[in-house]
Amino acid sequence: MDYNETLSLFIMAVALSMDAFSVGLGMGLQLLRLKRIFFIGLTVGFFHIAMPFVGMLMGRFISSKLEGAATLGAGLLLFGLGMHMILQLFQAERKQPMKPIGLGLFLFAFSVSVDSFSVGLSLGMSGVRIVVTTFLFGLTSTVFTWTGLLLGKRARGLLGIYSEVCGGSILCGFGLHFIFG
Rank of each mutant, 00 (worst) to 15 (best):
L76V: 01
G120M: 09
S64D: 12
G138V: 10
D115K: 04
S113T: 10
A50Q: 03
L81R: 00
G181V: 13
I161P: 12
L176E: 05
V119G: 03
M125A: 11
A92H: 12
L123M: 13
L150S: 09
V128T: 13
F39E: 08
F135W: 14
I130F: 09
L81N: 03
F117N: 07
M98G: 13
F47N: 06
L16N: 03
A70C: 08
G26T: 01
S126Y: 05
V131P: 02
G160E: 11
G102L: 02
V132F: 09
G124P: 10
E164V: 14
A69G: 14
A13T: 11
L150V: 15
E5C: 03
F117P: 12
S169K: 02
A92L: 13
S116V: 06
G181C: 05
E67L: 14
G160K: 05
F178V: 14
F106Y: 13
G120V: 09
C172V: 14
G124W: 07
I130K: 03
S17C: 09
L136H: 03
V23A: 06
F178S: 05
K153G: 15
G175T: 04
G120I: 10
L176D: 06
S113D: 05
Q88K: 11
F39G: 00
L25A: 03
K153Q: 15
G157Y: 10
K35H: 10
A50H: 02
I130Y: 09
V132Q: 12
F174T: 07
F47H: 06
R36M: 09
L151R: 01
P52R: 00
G173A: 15
F135I: 15
I11M: 11
L77E: 04
T134G: 04
M1A: 13
L139C: 08
L159D: 07
S22D: 02
S22T: 13
G55V: 05
L149W: 11
L176A: 12
F110V: 14
H48D: 10
L31K: 14
K35F: 13
S111H: 01
G167H: 03
K99V: 09
T147K: 06
A70F: 12
H48T: 01
D19S: 06
S122W: 06
A155M: 14
R154S: 10
S141F: 13
S118G: 15
L34M: 08
L171V: 03
K35I: 00
L66N: 01
T6L: 15
D2F: 10
I179F: 00
L34N: 10
L107F: 12
I62R: 02
F53M: 11
A70D: 11
E164D: 08
V14F: 15
L72M: 14
I62S: 00
F110P: 07
A70H: 05
N4H: 10
V119N: 00
L7T: 08
I86N: 05
I170M: 06
A20R: 01
V119W: 04
K65G: 01
I11V: 15
M85T: 10
R33T: 15
M1R: 07
F46R: 05
F47V: 00
F180K: 09
V44K: 00
S122N: 01
L9I: 15
G160S: 09
M125H: 04
M85H: 07
I49N: 00
G138Y: 09
L81E: 05
L150C: 09
I161T: 11
L149P: 06
S163M: 12
I179E: 00
R94E: 14
C166P: 02
N4I: 13
